[in-house]
Design a protein around this nucleic acid. Structure first.
Length: 917
RNA sequence: GCCCAGGUGGUGGAAUCGGUAGACACGCAGGACUUAAAAUCCUGUGGCUUCACGGCUGUGCGGGUUCAAGUCCCGCCCUGGGUACCA
C-alpha cells in the first residue's frame, strides 16, 4: 500500500474490532474503573448529522485514553427509544412505533459504526425494551411505596408512615386525625390520605395540557407557552394526574450541586430552576368572617408598607372572599383569568388586571383594614397563592397600585417612590414602628422574630421547583404499573412486572377522550382496570446509566456487586439543553434509590461536560417578489426580494451557486427561472442556525467519512474549537487535517517506492524532545478536555519530525499510541505495519520523560524597564546574583544601565525577563 | 428585568501562575517540481512605517494596580445562552 487509503484502512479495522470484540468491557474488577457515558440519543427518522457525534468523539477519546492508562473502562451506548415523534408518525401512517423505532436505530447504528467508536455494544440498551422498562416500572413501584421523612431527611418505606398513623395519628399541615380515626377510615379514605405523602402520587392539579399533542407536559417540556416538541400551544387544565414528588428533594438537589464538577452555568440553571427563597409566612385575619389568609414573603421587613393583599384567581378561599357588590365582578374576573392559556397569559404580562373582592383583613401589626384583591399576577401554584402587596418596594405591586390607585407607602429609605418602587435590599427602615432605623438585613431578622413571637406566622423556605407530572395520555411509553381496585390505586406485584405495552388498533385517543391505552383489549390486572396513561420520555433516561453496569440482569436492575464496582459516572457528556429536565430527574432518581439502599452513591455523575451545538450554515438565494427571477446577493438592494433556503450542496465555499445543479434539485421551481448574475455568477447569502432538514443545511457524517475518512472527521470535529462552544459547521480547514494524516503516513513511507520503512536507529535528542513535548501536551489536554489544542500539538509534532526526516521506531510507536484515541484507524494500521500482532488498544500510554525538555542554555529577550528588549544567554542553573553580575558585565546591558546596579532582576522560571534600575 | 458565559488578525482559534500576544489550521500572495493539471514541498502573511536593520502600534471601550495586563480590579458597550409576574 503506497498512499494513505483511509477507506480501505477504516473498513478493515472496523471489521477487525467487531470480530475480536476489542471494546468489550472486561468482566473482572481487578483494575481501577472509569465510567465514561454519552447521553444516549433519541433515534429520530432524520438520522445523525455532524453535530451529534461531537460529544461522542470526545467521550471516545477519553475512553481510549483511559484504557491505555490501564483503567477498566465502561463506555456503552443505547437508545432513548420511547417518545413523541415515533408516535406522531404512527398516527399519520398507521406504522407501529416499534417498527419505525427499530428502523431508525438500525440507521443510527450504521452511522455510528462508521466513525469508529469504542462502544461496548454488548451492553446496548433501549428504553422501549420490556426487559429494560420492567425496571423502570419497578422503580416507579418503589416511588409509590415511599414517602419523604422530613425528620430523617430521606425517603422511607410508606409502611413506616402507616404504622405511625396507626400508633399516633397525624397532625401536620395537610392532615389532622387521631390513631383511632385512622383505623376507622375506609380503604379509599386511607389511600387518599397516603397519596399526599407517596413519592409517586395521584392528585388533582393544574397541568400543562397540549391539545394538539393530546397530552399533558411537565414544566420543563413547555417553553414560552408552547410545547418544546412541535411548538403547539399549551393550556392550563385541572386534571387528575400521576406526579413524582421531586419537590421533596429540592433542598438536597440544591446542596448536591456544590459537590459536582459541572459547569457553572449549568449548575446556575439548576439553582434557578429549584429557586430556593427564604422568608416568612404571615397570616392576615378577619375576626368577623373568620377568614385567615396566609401569605409568603421574602421581605417581612416591609410589612408596614402593606397596602393591600392580592390572591391568585385559583385561590381556594376565593368564593368566601368575594362578597357584596363586588362579588359577581370579582368571580367573573377570576373565572376568565383562570381559563387563559399559558401563551395568552405570558403575552399579557404587561397588562395589569385585577378586581377587588369586597373583603378586608386586619393588618397583623397595625390592625388596619387591608383590602383583598384578586390579581392574575399572583400564581396559584407558588407559595400560598396570596401575597402581601408592598407597592413601595416591589415593582409588580407598584404597577398594580398605580393602576388601581391604591396607596404606596415608603418603609425603606433610599428610593424615589414617585418614579418607581425601591426594591434594593439596602437602606434604613422608616414608618415601621419597632423596625425603624434598622438596616434591611437586620429588619428582616427582627420582623421574623416578631412574627413568630406573636404567633402570626413563621420563618419559611419556599422552592420554585414543582412536582413533576408523570402521566402522559400517549401510547408509546412505559405503561404505569398501577391498577384500580374499587377506585383505590394499587401497584402491580413486582413478580408480575413488566406490564407489557399492549397492541392497539389506532394510536389515537378514544372517541370519549380517553388515552390510547383504553383501546387495548383486556387491559386489566386480576380483573381490575389498569392505568391508562404512560410514563413520560424522561422516565427511562432517569436511571439508564445504572443498567449499563449489568444490562442483562433478570433479578435486579443491576447487581450490588456491579453497582459497587462501577459507582457513578466519571465523565458524562451531553447537551446543556437537558439542564432542567433529564439532568435534574436523574439526580432525583439516584438520590431516591440511594435513600432506599439500592445504590451506593447519591449523585449520578461526578463530572459533566456540555458539548456545544454544531450549527448549520444555510444558504439563501433571493427571488424578486412576484416573479420567477433570482438575483445575486450583491444586487438584491435594487429589488424587492424574498430569501429562499436552498440545499447547501448546491453552493461552493465562497457562496457561489451552481445554477445547473439548482435546476436539477427542484425543476418545478427553478427549471424556467431567470437569474440576474454579478460578474457572471450567482452569489447567495449565508445564515448560521440550527441544523435542520427544513433549512436544507444538514451535513451527514457519512458524507464526511466518504470524502475525508472517519479519522479526519474525528480530528476535525475536535480541532474546530473548544468542545463546549457552539460553532457553525464549515468544511474550510478539514483539508488541513487530512493533510496532517497524510504527512504522518509519509513519515513511514518516505522513499521513492513509497514502501513501509521503519528504522531501529537510536533517535536524536531533538527527536526525543519533539516526542516528549507531544506526550506531555496530549496527556494534559485529555485530562483538561482541551482536545483542540492537542490536535494542534500533533500537527506541530509531525511537522517537526518531517523536517527531521524521522522514521524511527522509538519515536513513531509512542506517537501512534497517543494519537490512537483521536485517529484509531490509521494508528491501528501503522501499528500493525510496525509488526505488532495485537491491537494498539492493548498498548500502554507512554511515560513522559521531562529530561528531554531541559535545555542547558537559553536565549531570551530581556526587557529593560519594561521597554527596550535585547537578548542575553545564561546557563539555566546560574543563581540570580551571578546573573546580575553577568548582566553588568555585558556590554549591551551596561550601556543601558549606564553602569548602575540593577534595582531588581525579575526572574521567571529561572529566566530573567526584566531588569529594573 | 435577573442570572451565567464570552468579546484576540481576512477566518476558526492558541496563549497552565500576570512574563516574547496571534501557536496550529484555513484563506491569500509568491516560488519549486510538472508539457500541463492535481498532489506535494518551500517562503511570506495583525496594522502603520522603513530599500533594509529596525521603529511605532495592537487582544470591545474608558480608567486603575504592577517592573510587566488578553489575563487582576472598577465603570461602560456589545454578543450568545438560561430564566421570567416565583412575592
Amino acid at each position: 500500500m503506497a498512499s494513505y487509503d483511509f477507506r480501505e484502512i477504516e473498513k478493515k479495522w472496523q471489521a477487525s474490532w467487531k470480530q475480536h470484540a476489542n471494546y468489550k468491557t472486561p468482566e473482572n474488577f481487578d483494575r481501577p474503573k472509569f465510567y465514561a457515558l454519552d447521553m444516549f440519543p433519541y433515534p429520530s427518522g432524520a438520522g445523525l448529522h455532524v453535530g451529534h457525534p461531537l460529544g461522542y468523539i470526545a467521550g471516545d477519546i477519553v475512553s481510549r485514553f483511559k484504557r491505555l492508562k490501564g483503567f477498566n473502562v465502561l463506555h456503552p451506548m443505547g437508545y432513548d427509544a420511547f417518545g413523541l415523534p415515533a408516535e406522531q408518525y404512527a398516527i399519520q401512517t398507521g406504522q407501529h412505533p416499534a417498527v419505525t423505532t427499530e428502523e431508525n436505530i438500525k440507521r443510527y447504528r450504521e452511522q455510528l459504526d462508521r466513525i469508529g467508536f469504542s462502544f461496548d455494544w454488548s451492553r446496548e440498551i433501549r428504553t422501549c425494551d420490556p426487559s429494560y422498562y420492567k425496571w423502570t416500572q419497578w422503580i416507579f413501584v418503589q416511588l409509590f411505596n415511599s414517602w419523604y421523612n422530613r425528620e430523617t431527611d430521606k425517603a422511607e418505606n410508606i409502611s413506616g408512615l402507616i404504622s405511625k398513623f396507626e400508633i399516633s395519628g397525624c397532625n401536620d399541615d395537610l392532615n389532622q386525625f387521631t390513631a383511632a380515626e385512622w383505623k376507622n377510615f375506609s380503604e379509599k379514605e386511607q389511600s387518599d390520605i397516603l397519596l399526599n405523602y407517596r413519592l409517586a402520587f395521584l392528585s388533582e392539579a393544574m397541568v400543562n395540557w397540549c391539545p394538539a399533542l393530546g397530552t399533558v407536559l411537565a414544566n420543563d417540556e413547555v417553553k414560552d407557552g408552547v410545547s418544546e416538541r412541535g411548538g403547539y400551544p399549551v393550556e392550563r387544565k385541572l386534571m387528575t394526574q400521576w406526579s413524582l414528588r421531586i419537590s421533596a428533594y429540592a433542598d438536597r438537589l440544591l446542596k448536591g450541586l456544590d459537590t459536582l464538577d459541572w459547569s457553572d452555568s449549568l449548575k446556575e440553571s439548576q439553582r434557578n430552576w429549584i429557586g430556593k427563597s427564604e422568608g416568612s409566612s404571615l397570616f392576615f385575619k378577619n375576626p368577623e368572617s373568620k377568614i385567615e389568609l396566609e401569605v409568603f414573603t421574602t421581605r417581612p421587613d416591609t410589612v408596614f408598607g402593606v397596602s393591600f393583599l392580592a390572591i391568585a384567581p385559583e385561590h381556594p378561599l376565593l368564593n368566601d372572599l368575594c362578597i357584596g357588590n363586588e362579588r359577581d365582578q370579582a368571580l367573573a374576573y377570576s373565572e376568565k383569568a383562570r381559563n387563559r392559556s399559558e401563551r395568552e397569559r405570558q403575552a399579557e404580562v404587561k397588562n395589569i388586571t385585577g378586581a377587588f373582592t369586597g373583603s378586608y383583613v386586619k393588618h397583623p401589626f397595625t390592625n388596619e383594614d387591608i383590602p383583598v384583591w384578586v390579581a392574575d399576577y399572583v400564581l396559584g401554584g407558588y407559595g400560598t397563592g396570596a401575597v402581601m402587596a408592598v407597592p413601595g418596594h416591589d415593582s409588580r405591586d407598584y404597577a398594580f397600585a398605580r393602576h388601581f390607585n391604591l396607596p404606596i407607602l415608603e418603609v425603606v429609605a433610599g428610593g424615589d417612590l414617585s418614579i418607581e418602587a425601591y426594591e434594593a435590599k439596602t437602606g434604613q427602615l422608616i414608618n415601621s414602628s419597632f423596625l425603624d432605623g434598622l438596616e434591611v438585613k437586620d429588619a428582616i431578622k427582627k420582623a421574623i422574630e416578631a412574627i413568630e413571637q406573636k404567633g402570626l406566622g413563621k420563618g419559611k423556605t419556599n422552592f420554585r421547583l414543582r412536582d413533576a407530572v408523570f402521566g402522559r395520555q400517549r401510547y408509546w411509553g412505559e405503561p404505569i404499573p398501577v391498577y384500580y381496585e374499587n377506585g383505590v390505586p394499587k401497584c402491580v406485584a413486582e413478580s408480575d412486572l413488566p406490564v407489557i405495552l399492549p397492541e392497539i388498533d389506532k394510536y389515537l385517543p378514544t372517541e370519549t377522550g380517553e388515552p390510547p391505552l383504553a383501546r387495548a383489549k383486556d387491559w386489566t390486572y386480576n380483573n381490575h382496570p389498569l392505568e391508562l396513561t404512560t410514563m413520560p420520555g424522561w422516565a427511562g433516561s432517569s436511571w439508564y446509566f445504572m443498567r449499563y453496569m449489568d444490562p442483562h440482569n433478570e433479578t435486579a436492575f443491576a447487581s450490588k456487586e456491579n453497582l459497587n464496582y462501577w459507582q457513578n459516572i466519571d465523565l458524562y457528556i451531553g447537551g446543556s439543553e437537558h439542564a432542567t429536565g433529564h439532568l435534574l430527574y436523574f439526580r432525583f432518581w439516584t438520590k431516591f434509590l440511594y435513600d432506599m439502599g439500592h445504590v451506593p452513591f447519591d449523585e449520578p455523575a461526578k463530572k459533566l461536560i456540555n458539548q456545544g451545538m454544531i450549527q448549520g450554515v444555510s444558504s439563501l438565494i433571493h427571488r424578486i417578489n412576484n416573479t420567477n427571477k433570482f438575483v445575486s446577493a450583491g444586487l438584491k438592494g435594487e429589488y424587492e426580494t424574498t430569501a429562499i433556503h436552498i440545499d447547501i450542496k448546491l453552493v461552493t465555499n465562497n457562496n457561489q451557486v451552481d445554477i445547473e445543479a439548482l435546476k436539477q434539485w427542484r425543476p418545478s421551481e427553478f427549471e424556467n427561472a431567470e437569474f440576474i448574475l454579478e460578474n457572471g455568477i450567482l452569489i447567495c447569502d449565508s445564515e448560521v442556525g440550527k441544523m435542520s432538514k427544513r433549512w436544507h443545511n444538514v451535513v451527514n457524517p457519512d458524507d464526511v467519512c466518504d470524502n475525508y475518512g472517519a479519522d479526519t472527521l474525528r480530528l476535525y470535529e475536535m480541532f474546530l474549537g473548544p468542545l463546549q462552544d457552539a460553532k457553525p459547521w464549515s468544511t474550510q480547514g478539514i483539508e488541513g487535517v487530512l493533510r496532517f494524516l497524510r504527512k504522518l503516513w509519509r513519515l513511514f513511507h518516505n522513499n521513492p517506492e513509497e514502501s513501509f520503512v521503519l528504522s531501529d536507529e537510536e533517535p536524536s535528542k531533538a527527536e526525543y524532545k519533539t516526542l516528549h513535548k507531544t506526550i506531555k501536551k496530549a496527556t494534559e489536554d485529555i485530562e483538561n478536555f482541551s482536545f483542540n489544542t492537542s490536535v494542534s500539538a500533533f500537527m506541530v509534532c509531525i511537522n517537526e519530525l518531517q523536517d527531521l526526516k524521522c522514521n524511527k521506531r522509538k519515536i513513531l510507536e509512542p506517537l501512534l499510541i497517543i494519537l490512537s484515541p483521536y485517529a484509531p484507524h490509521i494508528a491501528e494500521e501503522l501499528w500493525s505495519l510496525c509488526g505488532h500482532n495485537t491491537s494498539i488498544n492493548n498498548a500502554e500510554w507512554p511515560a513522559f520523560n521531562g529530561e528531554y525538555l531541559i535545555e542547558n542554555e537559553f536565549n531570551y529577550p530581556i526587557s529593560f524597564n519594561g521597554k527596550v528588549r535585547f537578548n542575553l544567554n545564561f546557563a539555566l542553573d546560574m543563581d540570580p546574583k551571578a546573573m546580575e553580575t553577568e548582566i553588568l558585565a555585558n556590554e549591551q546591558t551596561s550601556k543601558y544601565l549606564e553602569g548602575k546596579a540593577p534595582k531588581k532582576v525579575i526572574v521567571v522560571k529561572g529566566k530573567i525577563v526584566n531588569i529594573v534600575i
